[in-house]
Nucleic acid binder design. Structure first.
Length: 428
RNA sequence: GUGAUUGUAGCUCAGUUGGUUAGAGCGCCAGGUUGUGGCCCUGGAGGUCGGGGGUUCGAGUCCCCUCAUUCACCCCA
């Protein structure tokens, strides 16, 4: 056991798993492009106030889950990003993107950090793919964003997901509701657990999605958020649902769905996977029409977005057997040396092959031919190319097809031609 | 932050009521005649049994502490 381990809640991704990641990322880039979204990258850390102001100082994320530090003793406090929306919005405002176009469609694949106790599907460093549509948050825009997210799942072959929808109304609706909820809960406060009691004045909405059955019983008779929504909010929400119907996306309306970030309003949604255990949210998002202004933007900038947990997506896909076919590509040629003294010739041959874009490897460890053949086989090489005294003298080398076991003797030039043509056919 | 769980070779795990040089499978390395893989066979390397203390004639096996893991609460993607 090594003295040095990866930090708690972090992990290494080794080459055999990278192929799965590449596969997922490729689909994300393709689908995002299909919907006209452009990639954005922002710094991994931001000034701490950005998150306090956007996510909400009373939220758990900001309250106790952030990696915060002060690089200079008297300098400003900095935080490793616990989510992406705040940073993207900050960049949007700072870069004055609004000046170039009223609408911006951005997406990202990014590493995030949250100081939580690690558990299945929950790491301290994790990655999300997400999209932010900034400038409009009409029902069409909301539906497009949800459509993008669901199509990524669909294109990856993921099944059995549950999409839950809710409307939080506008800020005023919400204020009224929070008051009513607080009024209802106050008399029950003795029955609430410690967490919920604390939230009662800080963030009462969060009590709604508590997993504690006793609290759920109390919540059952609580006033409903839906009854506090204005007519326009209801109308908008129904339009969103209509678009989802049109797209053939199935969903359930969950009046208790509340998201943990303060900036959400109107439509909120979450996708859960039954393959996941306790941490079953694979993606979620909603509208955040007020965020830009909260961050100092002069004009109102409505927006919608979502984020998908890539580790959770990966776990789900693994459980559904969607990654077994994604394998690392083996080399086309494994150059087998008769003896290690000929190593310089093998280097030269590899150079020639690689110049012709033929993926080739050779043994660098000086192993026996048998070991080299075994490795070639294990790597999934298509051909073995034998280099020995005879070959070098005659300048004709044995090329063995490792699937058919057929072997022929060819010059390097002929070998290059042979493999280049197989390159072309495999590319098609 | 709280609770529980586990911690023996690179990986997955066995290790009987505490008793001699700690095992298996897979993987790795080398062989199975003269320059050639996938199957099979043989051999080999590799572990201060997470770390520290204690009980005992004797501890991988019991006790305490510590570190780490995993799962759940919580939170969220």
């Amino acid at each position: 056991m090594s003295q040095y381990r990866a930090v708690k809640g972090t992990r290494d991704v080794f080459p055999d798993e990278i192929t799965s990641w590449n596969h997922i990322e490729k689909v994300i880039h393709r689908v995002a492009g299909l919907y006209g979204f452009h990639e954005i990258r922002t710094p991994v850390f931001e000034y701490t106030e950005l998150f306090q102001r956007s996510i909400g100082a009373a939220t758990d994320i900001v309250g106790k889950e952030m990696f915060t530090f002060r690089p200079e003793e008297k300098g400003r406090s900095i935080t490793l990003r616990p989510e992406m929306t705040a940073g993207v919005m900050r960049a949007f405002i700072q870069g004055n993107l609004a000046a170039s176009s009223p609408i911006h469609k951005l997406y990202y694949i990014a590493e995030l950090f949250r100081k939580e106790r690690p558990q299945a599907g929950r790491q301290r460093q994790f990655s999300q793919f997400g999209a932010e549509l900034i400038g409009v948050s009409s029902p069409e825009a909301v539906a497009e964003v949800i459509g993008l997210m669901m199509q990524v799942f669909a294109d990856l072959g993921v099944t059995g997901l549950r999409l839950r929808m809710n409307s939080l109304g506008d800020v005023e609706d919400r204020m009224h509701y929070i008051e009513a909820l607080r009024e209802y809960l106050e008399p029950h406060s003795a029955l609430l657990d410690e967490h919920s009691r604390e939230r009662l004045d800080k963030n009462p909405l969060r009590i709604l999605d508590s997993k504690n059955p006793e609290i759920q019983a109390i919540i059952a008779d609580a006033p409903r958020l839906h009854d506090f929504l204005g007519a326009s909010a209801i109308e908008e929400f129904e339009k969103v649902l209509h678009y989802l119907d049109e797209k053939g996306l199935s969903y359930v309306i969950d009046p208790l769905l509340v998201r943990g970030l303060d900036y959400y309003c109107h439509t909120a949604f979450e996708v859960t996977s039954s393959e996941l255990g306790a941490q079953d949210a694979i993606g979620g998002g909603g509208q955040y029409d007020g965020l830009a202004k909260q961050l100092g933007c002069k004009s109102d900038v409505p927006a919608v977005g979502f984020a998908v947990g890539l580790e959770r997506l990966l776990i789900t896909m693994e459980k559904q057997g969607l990654l077994t076919h994604v394998k690392q590509e083996g080399p086309q040629v494994y150059v087998v040396l008769q003896s290690h003294e000929l190593v310089a010739h093998a280097v030269g041959i590899c150079d020639v092959l690689r110049e012709s874009r033929i993926r080739s490897v050779m043994d660098l460890a000086g192993r026996s031919m048998k070991a080299q053949m075994r490795e070639a086989n294990k790597m999934g090489a298509s051909y073995a190319l034998f280099v020995g005294q005879d070959e070098l003298q005659r300048q004709v080398f044995g090329l063995k097809n490792l699937t058919t076991s057929e072997q022929e003797f060819l010059s390097i030039q002929q070998i290059v031609e042979r493999l280049e043509s197989s390159n072309i056919s495999s590319a098609q």
